[in-house]
C-alpha cells in the first residue's frame, strides 16, 4: 500500500532522514518512534507532500506521490500542533475543509462525541489548546479515508477525551485502515501498535512488532526497550 524508497532529507547541514526505506502492506496501526529530532514528523510531512524529499520517493498504491495531490483524498492528517486561522469560527473551519475536500463526511457524531457543540460559534483563536486539538481530531476523523496519519494525537487532551480517541482509533483500525502514529506516550503505542518503526539519526534501526522489539532487547516493556536501543 505505502512503499517508502530511499528517502533522504536535509535541512541545511542537518541530515534528518538518510535513505529511509520500508513498506506498509497490511492494514493496522504503525507507530513511528524515535527521540526528538529523529525525523518522525519530517517523514510524515513528506508522506503528505508538505515537505519535499531531496532524494527517494514514496509510492502510494503503486503511484509516486511527488507532484501529485489527489492521493491526499485518501489520507487524513492530524498535525502535531493544532494551529488554525485565528479569526475563523469552529463551524467555519469544519465547513471549509468539507467544502475543499468535497467528500462524504460525518462530523456531527464526532462533534457530539467530543462535546464541541457549544464551541461551534467560537473563534478558533479563543479556544484552549485541548479544545483546538479536539477540533483537529474532528477534522481528521470525519472523512472515511483508508489511511490516517496522527502526529502526536494526544497532545493537550484530558483523560476522558484520550479514552474516546483511543476507542476511535481502534474503531477505524477495525475497518481495515492503515493508521500511522507518532507519539511520546509509550503506553499508548504499546496498547495500540501492530507494528513499530524506530527512527534514530535519520535511519530505521528497528521495524517489527512490539513483541519482537521487546524480545530483541530482552526487556519487559516498550519504554525500557527503547531506552536500551538509545543507550547501545
Amino acid at each position: 500500500m505505502i512503499q517508502v524508497k530511499n528517502i533522504q532529507k536535509s535541512f541545511g547541514k542537518l541530515r534528518v532522514l538518510d535513505r529511509v526505506s520500508f513498506d506498509i502492506t497490511e492494514s493496522g496501526i504503525v507507530s513511528i518512534l524515535g527521540p526528538n529530532g529523529s525525523g518522525k514528523t519530517t517523514f510524515l510531512k513528506i508522506l503528505l507532500g508538505m515537505v519535499i524529499a531531496d532524494k527517494g520517493f514514496i509510492l502510494y498504491q503503486g503511484q509516486n506521490i511527488s507532484h501529485s495531490h489527489r492521493y491526499r483524498n485518501k489520507i487524513s492528517y492530524l498535525p502535531q500542533i493544532a494551529r488554525f486561522p485565528d479569526n475563523l469560527k469552529v463551524k467555519e473551519v469544519i465547513s471549509m475543509i468539507l467544502d475543499i475536500r468535497n467528500e462524504p463526511a460525518n462530523p456531527e457524531s464526532l462533534i457530539e462525541l467530543f462535546g464541541l457543540a457549544k464551541y461551534m460559534d467560537q473563534k478558533l483563536g479563543n479556544l484552549s489548546g485541548g479544545t483546538r486539538q479536539k477540533v483537529n481530531i474532528v477534522l481528521t476523523f470525519m472523512f472515511d479515508s483508508p489511511v490516517i496519519v496522527l502526529d502526536e494525537p494526544t497532545a493537550g487532551l484530558d483523560p476522558v477525551s484520550l479514552i474516546k480517541l483511543k476507542a476511535l482509533i481502534k474503531r477505524e483500525k477495525s475497518k481495515g485502515k492503515i493508521i500511522l502514529i507518532t507519539s511520546h506516550i509509550m503506553s499508548l503505542v504499546e496498547e495500540l501498535s501492530d507494528e513499530v518503526v524506530f527512527l534514530l539519526e535519520g535511519n530505521i534501526c528497528f521495524k517489527g512488532t512490539v513483541e519482537k522489539l521487546k524480545a530483541k532487547t530482552n526487556t519487559e516493556d516498550l519504554e525500557h526497550a527503547i531506552a536500551k536501543i538509545l543507550e547501545s
Partner: peptide, 16 residues
Amino acid sequence: NSREFTELLLAQPVKR
C-alpha cells in the same frame, strides 16, 4: 500570519 491556514490546506487534496 496564514501559515496555519496554509499548513491545514497542504494536507488536503489540493495542488500547492
